[in-house]
Amino acid sequence: MLLNVEGVDAYCYTGGKPFDASLPTVVFIHGAQNDHSVWALQTRFFAHHGYGVLAVDLPGHGRSQGAAKASVEALADWLLAVLDAAGVRQAALFGHSMGSLIALEAAFRAPDRVTHLGMIGSTYPMKVSDALLETARTDEAAAIDMVNIWSHSSATRKPSSAGPGTSVMDGARRLMQRISAINPALVFHTDFSACNSYANGEAAAQSVRCPTLFLFGRKDMMTPARSTKLLTSTIAHGKVVQVDSGHSLMSEQPDAVREALYGFVSR
């Protein structure tokens, strides 16, 4: 589904069913150098089990037009504008990695519009090493390879993957390469810089009153468990669930992620 947001097209995948704003809405927000497709299994399930689904392509990613936005704050404002354009008053927000910061900031800016907050593969501060930032600026292909190695717990196929011959790691790599091909404006560096410079996370976390789920990978090297304590202690009412994966939870353990998210909003 294409929406007009800030004068340009914004794409939202609706899970294989027409979007119905009268249903409870769940918004899925991807991370750096990704698009809506990282939520493929989860979004289709929600769309076929009584929810309106909006899995966004952030500006400059996938099918959404415009330049990639340089700050989490600007992305949160854009996300709220997407809700306006879709005719949605309230929604559950599920964000992965950078997307989790966008969801958190949107909840801070418009708390009455967020019914549930899902923080997947999240941490705060979400600092990016100087070496990775520089590599993303000067050699995006190398940065893609680095992040894909760090984001997966192993190169082997997981039980809930698509089947023999499927490579979760190679699929993630090809998606990032595709984002580079359709938008050569150093999207990865822009995304990483936005994560690295975001400074309102603690204040935003202190303001959260809606039900909150933290979903972490036990083997996550990008946002390891030891780095999540500020968020989980500040949002003390949040529930913490861990799955056997690295940072790419939705592709490494899609069924476990689906079950955790669905159970969170439907109970």
Rank of each mutant, 00 (worst) to 15 (best):
C195P: 08
C195M: 14
N196H: 15
N196P: 02
N196V: 01
S197K: 12
S197R: 14
S197N: 14
A199G: 09
N200V: 00
G201I: 04
E202W: 04
E202V: 12
A203M: 11
A204I: 11
A204G: 12
A204F: 12
A205T: 07
A205M: 09
A205Q: 04
Q206K: 15
Q206L: 11
Q206D: 02
S207W: 06
V208P: 05
R209F: 02
R209M: 10
R209L: 09
C210I: 10
C210E: 09
C210P: 11
P211D: 04
P211Q: 06
T212V: 02
T212A: 04
L213D: 04
L213H: 05
F214N: 00
F214G: 01
F214V: 01
L215K: 01
L215C: 05
F216G: 02
G217E: 03
G217A: 07
K219L: 13
K219P: 00
K219C: 08
D220H: 05
D220R: 01
M221E: 12
M222R: 09
T223P: 01
P224H: 11
A225T: 07
A225S: 10
A225C: 02
A225I: 10
R226P: 00
R226W: 11
S227K: 10
S227I: 00
S227W: 04
T228M: 06
T228A: 08
K229D: 12
K229M: 09
L231A: 03
L231N: 04
L231F: 03
